[in-house]
């Protein structure tokens, strides 16, 4: 049992985007699509401090990921052994509910395979070597490891303090990618790329309108027919009786 996570030290990161290319080389994502991204922010004035940082992001493999319930066929699920959110490509029909539901925008529909694609912490490489982005990060800003095992390097890094998660009061799906660095940088990121809960209209209709209606409807018809049946039995109506 393990829960893999990552720590990204924004103070160390220089925004050189090596992680993006290493990931693309490893998983051959199509042209302008990346599983991990580096979005430069600034230089911009935050309170009385100048900030020039980059939002290094990917799938946060959240504890209660909003993308999992958003997927109708449950193609995406949080793997219990490793805590990594994976996708079962047989079940994925490429509808993109999960793409909208992800507060960090970590998913995209691959135009070639027409199915969803996301970072899976280099799941096939797990165990042998670190994910491609962690290995190539020239300033070792990215650290990957098992959060549950207390004396792993990543747990020590987190316990050093000054560690934040990109989450707000309203939207906090429990991400497992932690960010270290100056508070102003985290604020700049949250200001520019706030995690927002946004569901697609059809998904909302389905979960808020249709689902209760169906359950209600099914219940009603069941009870209705039951009542009608009982009503009919105690009537003792004979078969083919004709009143006229």
């Amino acid at each position: 049992m393990a829960k893999y996570g990552m720590v990204i030290d924004l103070d160390r990161c220089v925004g050189c985007q090596a992680c993006m290319v290493a990931c693309k080389a490893q998983w051959q994502t199509p042209e302008d699509y990346f599983r991990t991204w580096v979005k430069h922010i600034g230089p911009v004035q935050i309170k009385d401090e100048m900030v020039f940082t980059s939002y290094v992001g990917q799938c946060n493999h959240c504890d209660n990921p909003p993308c999992v319930p958003a997927c109708p066929t449950q193609a995406t699920f949080k793997d219990t052994e490793t805590g990594i959110v994976l996708v079962d490509y047989d079940l994925c029909i490429g509808c993109g509910y999960c793409v909208e539901a992800c507060p960090y925008g970590a998913r995209f529909i691959n135009p070639v395979t027409k199915k969803v694609e996301k970072c899976d912490f280099c799941y096939p490489r797990l165990g042998e070597e670190d994910p491609a982005c962690v290995k190539t990060c020239i300033v070792s800003a990215k650290v990957f490891g098992d959060l549950e095992n207390k004396d792993s390097y990543i747990s020590k890094k987190i316990s050093e303090g000054n560690t934040y998660i990109i989450a707000t009061k309203e939207v906090n799906p429990g991400p497992n990618v932690y960010y270290k660095g100056r508070r102003s940088k985290i604020e700049a990121i949250i200001k520019n790329y706030p995690p927002e809960k946004k569901d697609t209209l059809p998904a909302k209709i389905w979960s808020n309108v249709l689902r209760p209606f169906v359950i209600l409807g099914a219940g009603a018809t069941f009870i209705g027919s039951l009542v009608a049946f009982l009503f009919q039995i105690n009537q003792g109506e004979k078969e083919g009786e004709d009143e006229e």
Partner: peptide, 23 residues
Amino acid sequence: MAFHLLTPALIRWAIIIHFIAVG
């Protein structure tokens, strides 16, 4: 839905229309 025709946006609506029609 089955053969991912046209765009994902269309597939999104296809799901609930399918669901409503069957309903």
